[in-house]
């Protein structure tokens, strides 16, 4: 396979190998926390932060960490950063922390993060790993943002807490509940596949 340029390494996570739309990873937080745009954004940024930092470390020490215990080592590294993120959120933006609930700690087992360490950071240099992590994180964040925006707008009539729909708009209660998350995500994935199919054709 041809070596990817730096830009391609970064961009692939946003569309071609998007963790949610294409790889279908990390769906649990995706479905659970995206009731409001604010939550989606915060979740995405927290995950991106963890991804970036752990990719950096894993890539840096990839030659030092013995193969047999690499997963354990990754988990410890990831867990450390997740805890950092969790505590920071709790300390500085307690409201968001409260609404994200257990899903920030659950980033530890988010397949996207462990997956990138295993599939990419442990095999590539620091620069590339950072680009990859940033791309993936951004892809994740963007999808979460879109998903949560749709759900917040339709389900609550607001966006980032601002009233943006017309006066008589009736909230679609289902959108702020679990079924709404599945419906919206399904539509997004279908849309992405449709666009890809059209691009290929």
């Amino acid at each position: 396979m041809k070596e990817k340029t730096a830009i391609q390494e970064f961009v692939k996570g946003i569309w071609d190998e998007n963790p949610i739309l294409v790889q279908l990873l990390g769906l649990c937080p995706t479905l659970a926390v995206t009731t409001a745009a604010e939550n989606g954004l915060a979740m995405g940024m927290a995950a991106t932060f963890v991804l970036l930092c752990s990719s950096f470390l894993v890539s840096m020490f990839r030659k030092v960490i013995p193969g047999q215990v690499r997963i354990a080592a990754y988990i410890v590294i990831i867990a450390t950063f997740v805890t950092i993120a969790d505590r920071f959120l709790a300390a500085f933006v307690p409201d968001i922390s409260k609404s994200l609930g257990p899903f920030i700690p659950l980033i530890i087992v988010n397949c996207i993060i462990l997956g990138r360490q295993e599939a990419f950071a442990s095999k590539n240099g620091i620069g590339r790993s950072l680009l990859d992590a940033l791309g993936m994180g951004l892809g994740f964040t963007l999808v979460l943002l879109v998903l949560s925006s749709i759900r917040e707008i339709l389900g609550s009539g607001t966006w980032f807490g601002m009233n943006i729909m017309w006066e008589s708009f009736a909230e679609w209660g289902v959108m702020s509940q679990a079924p709404g998350a599945f419906i919206t995500l399904g539509c997004l994935i279908a849309g992405a596949n449709w666009i890809n199919a059209r691009r290929k054709a």
Partner: peptide, 10 residues
């Protein structure tokens, strides 16, 4: 069912 979940009041 969708309507019921979305607009339970109406």
């Amino acid at each position: 069912a969708f309507l019921q979940a979305s607009f339970p009041v109406k």
